[in-house]
Nucleic acid binder design. Structure first.
Length: 140
DNA sequence: GCCAACGTTGGC
DNA sequence: GCCAACGTTGGC
């Protein structure tokens, strides 16, 4: 089996927060209606890890989730054209990493979170993952 | 509250 | 097929 890939998923805490993710344990990551983001959902493999980012409010990476079910039809989509995955809470990021921090960290230059602010699902390179994990005091 | 980025829609 | 108008997301 190949090495797990890394991702970042966004949620507005008003709609669905990290606390809810932790309470639910496993949650269907639904509602993605953007082709680029959907393509990333389809590329996710069981066991991949993703940062959980709070957009709008907080604007910080607060936790890590694991993909436990690969892309399947999004039950919240009437057209049947969009997919979702199931993710499971792994652990919180001890020191949430804010967007401001990410922007000022030279090692994170070019990260999609900053470059494409509207994208809600994106890949994170191994190098960037390691930098963010270190900033957040996340040991896995 | 404003604005930039970007996707979608519809007229031509 | 082009492009203006409009809606949504998300940062500031």
């Amino acid at each position: 089996m190949s090495k797990p890939a890394h991702w970042l998923v966004k949620s507005e805490p008003d709609a669905f927060s990290w606390d809810q993710q932790v309470k639910h344990g496993t949650e269907a990551w639904t509602g993605v209606r953007n082709h680029q983001a959907a393509a990333f959902l389809k590329a996710m493999k069981k066991g991949d890890l993703a940062f959980f980012y709070h957009s709008n409010e907080g604007k910080e990476i607060v936790g890590v989730v694991r993909v436990v079910r690969e892309a399947y039809q999004d039950p919240t989509d009437d057209t049947g054209r969009w997919v979702c995955v199931d993710v499971q809470a792994v652990s919180p990021v001890p020191k949430p990493v804010t967007l401001a921090t990410i922007k000022t960290e030279p090692k994170l230059e070019g990260i999609a979170l900053v470059r494409q602010s509207r994208l809600s699902v994106m890949p994170i390179s191994d190098a960037h993952w390691a930098v963010i994990a270190k900033l957040g005091g996340w040991k896995g």
